[in-house]
Design a protein around this nucleic acid. Sequence first.
DNA 1: CTATGCTATTGGACATAGTCCAATATAAGA
DNA 2: TCTTATATTGGACTATGTCCAATAGCATAG
Lengths: 122, 122
Amino acid sequence: MKCACKGAFLERFIQPSILMSLYAGDLHGFSIIRKLKESGPIDYVGMDPTGLYRMLRKMEKAGLLTSAWKTEGSPQPRRIYSITGEGRNCLSYWERTLREYARSVSGLSEAVTMSLSHAGGR
Amino acid sequence: MKCACKGAFLERFIQPSILMSLYAGDLHGFSIIRKLKESGPIDYVGMDPTGLYRMLRKMEKAGLLTSAWKTEGSPQPRRIYSITGEGRNCLSYWERTLREYARSVSGLSEAVTMSLSHAGGR
DNA sequence: CTATGCTATTGGACATAGTCCAATATAAGA
DNA sequence: TCTTATATTGGACTATGTCCAATAGCATAG
């Protein structure tokens, strides 16, 4: 279950976001982008689509997703992604990781606030 | 007040951690590393010191810190860092940024949990 | 007495991550 | 006709982050 839970900023947010989107049903890359931009706790507005597409290919390679081309119903052929069993396991793993991660960030946030108030505006 | 609050994972954590450490008093790089490894909400254990040293130089260049060499009292000369007024402003800026950031991560964490429970174990 | 380990900082080389721009192709609307 | 939206990919580039080495003195272990 190598879910790349270690990794960079975008990876930490985009990978679980993708898995979450696909957990509810199959989607193609462009609609994932739209979905993430419209809703969700993270601000994806202005995000580079290239990065997301590359992440999708990477996750497929890692066995978390599978894909199939669909040519009808749109001007451009679309690559439809589905989550695999491994991908669902990975999402569970992310659930735990993100919880810890949220705690860490909250902790740091509070520590900064504390230090600013305690040190008494030197 | 260009505090590089946009940036990568380590930058988002280490930069405010450094500012917070120095807000309480002057320190040199090695002692900052020790401090962060011993305490603090983020797990810095095993962190590469090179990255932190580079961040210090970068922050000095950006005007958030100043440094001075101190040769006595240790085997190796130590570069003592102090936070500047700009650095203190930056820490306030981080306070707000990290709060938002914590909210986002918590939001994502909860969203993942929700999606896992709602979709009903397909 | 030598070997290892800790303190303390820097630099080079490298790997990974992320962005910008371009190419492709079709359909709808101004 | 020109732009905009859909939809995916590739190349080139910059930014980020890690690994290893060099330096150097002091302390402790063997």
